[in-house]
Design a binder for these strands. Structure first.
Length: 499
DNA sequence: AAAAAAT
């Protein structure tokens, strides 16, 4: 705690304890069991405000402990109200927590369930991609707290598995992400189902004009809580970028992973196909790698995440499905295989490391055509990222070639479920079930003749030195800022206003 | 330009 830099820690709440908040002994017990004694800054600020019943606009990045910041006081309020007026036989939904991605919903739900462990409150999580019937049964049995992704929640409402007419508290977690993903209409429909009289909490990693507009629409007289400068990168994350040619990016990632003998790394790819391919390639290199992205089934996504958390997988190759919110703690390193198209996503991605007092490394690979993206990122984070040299990097040189790997047959479709020769992770454990009716996404490369484009698997390609071709198409770095003002969002917000 | 999410 002594090496904290001067930013990001306002009015040092170091002496505050959870026991100062007057939380129920049942909650306090769960906190003590998990070793939580001192709240993080956002918890110290949010908990008293939420307990007062105020609406909250919270700007907090992941890793700041915001989940506990809202769920602890919510649980406390539910307990207090239950004692006063609730018939113990009924369990209407009284708190609703909305999250943008399934994984985030699951993780919030795990936390909530932990904090509720010694209370009579029941919670559950609902999200798409899995059988709806078990979820329906649980909710028909009665729960006070529901954590949900918006689409599946509406599905349950339509099926009359759940009534939202008794919801007293609404949380919108990662609200900026929900906007990005086009959830605004769903949010509007859900909110229309809620009682007018309720407490609203909205959390967002960034504080854009659109988020402020959303807050003005949905929150009433909110208390604004902001921890750390928005868009600031974690102080303890060491950032470096390595420039390579486009065709050497994959080799560079493999090189970094091998040379540093990295475990527990997330590698971010901009595309689902790129993530699958890179994971397969790393597996071919003998690394324990797995991919997680939106074209995987929910079972595969959860299996990959769990295997990564348990340490059975060292390298998780992810799209931005994993950029925000995922509470994977103590990651020593994050690698950007692609620079993100949105500079803000860079902040979210590297927020996976350097958390909770630990230091971290954020390594990014980029090529000529990404100069503009890099400039955008540096502008956003208001700092210049160190340009590094990849020591000992010889593109194309890899262990598998020494083992005669280049004449290996191409991996089957669904090969990510295959075990790497080193044994270990069985991935999605799908067995022989390869055809999930989803065309294209994870399909193996077709070895059709002399194609030189990106479809060819890098790990099957013999090494050829990078041509100095470098199509210099990136000649106009300035201007060309299109940034359309998203008329759809504006229109929707305008429509909300009128109501 | 890409990703995520209800079916």
């Amino acid at each position: 705690m002594s090496d904290i830099e001067t930013t990001a820690q306002p009015e040092a709440p170091a002496q505050v304890r959870f026991s100062d908040f007057g939380l129920s002994p049942d909650i306090q017990r769960a906190l003590t069991e998990q070793g939580y004694e001192h709240p993080t800054p956002i918890q110290a600020q949010a908990i008293p405000v939420v307990l007062q019943g105020r609406d909250v606009m919270g700007a907090a990045q992941t890793g700041t402990g915001k989940t506990a910041g809202f769920s602890l006081p919510i649980i406390q309020l539910l307990l207090a109200h239950a004692n006063a007026s609730m018939s113990p036989a009924r369990h209407p939904v009284r708190a609703l927590i909305l999250a943008p991605t399934r994984e985030l919903a699951v993780q919030v739900a795990e936390n909530v369930a932990n904090y509720c462990k010694h209370t009579p409150l029941r919670s559950t999580v609902v999200y798409g991609g899995v059988d709806i019937k078990p979820q329906a049964a649980i909710m028909r049995g009665g729960v006070e707290i529901v954590i949900a992704t918006p689409g599946r929640l509406l599905d349950h409402v339509e099926q009359k598995n759940i009534s939202l007419s008794q919801v007293q508290m609404l949380v919108m977690d990662e609200a900026d992400r929900m906007l990005d993903m086009g959830f605004l209409p769903d949010l509007q429909r859900i909110i229309n189902l809620l009682p007018k009289q309720r407490q609203n909490l909205m959390f967002s990693a960034t504080f854009s004009a659109e988020i402020k507009k959303l807050a003005a629409t949905f929150l009433s007289n909110p208390v604004t809580i902001e921890v750390a400068r928005s868009n600031a990168t974690a102080d303890k994350v060491t950032q470096v970028v390595y420039k390579v040619t486009e065709e050497n990016k994959r080799d560079a990632v493999a090189h970094i992973l091998r040379q540093r003998e990295l475990k527990q790394v997330i590698v971010f790819s901009n595309t689902k196909i790129g993530a699958s391919r890179l994971a397969r390639g790393l597996e071919q290199e003998g690394m324990k790698a797995s991919a997680i992205h939106g074209d995987k089934t929910q079972q595969e996504r959860m299996a990959a995440l769990e295997a990564f958390k348990r340490g059975e997988v060292d390298v998780l190759v992810a799209t931005d499905v994993a950029a925000r919110g995922l509470d994977i703690s103590d990651l020593p390193c994050v690698i950007n295989y692609d620079l993100p198209y949105n500079a803000e996503d860079y902040v979210h991605r590297i927020g996976r490391t350097g958390r909770a007092g630990a230091s971290g490394d954020a390594i990014s690979i980029y090529s000529d055509k990404d100069e503009r993206l890099l400039a955008d990122i540096e502008k956003l984070i208001k700092q210049t990222i160190k340009r590094g040299e990849l020591e000992g990097f010889r593109p194309g040189a890899r262990a598998s070639e020494e083992r005669g790997g280049s004449d290996r047959r191409p991996p089957r479709r669904g090969a990510e479920g295959e075990r790497p020769q080193g044994g270990g992770y069985a991935g999605s454990a799908n067995g022989g079930y390869a055809g999930n009716g989803r065309p294209g996404a994870d399909r193996g490369p077709r070895p059709s003749g002399p194609r030189r484009d990106k479809v060819d698997p890098w790990f099957l390609k013999p090494y050829e030195p990078s041509r100095p071709s470098t199509a210099s198409t990136t000649t106009t770095p300035s201007s060309s800022a299109p940034s359309k003002p998203k008329p759809r969002l504006a229109a929707l917000l305008g429509g909300l206003r009128k109501e």
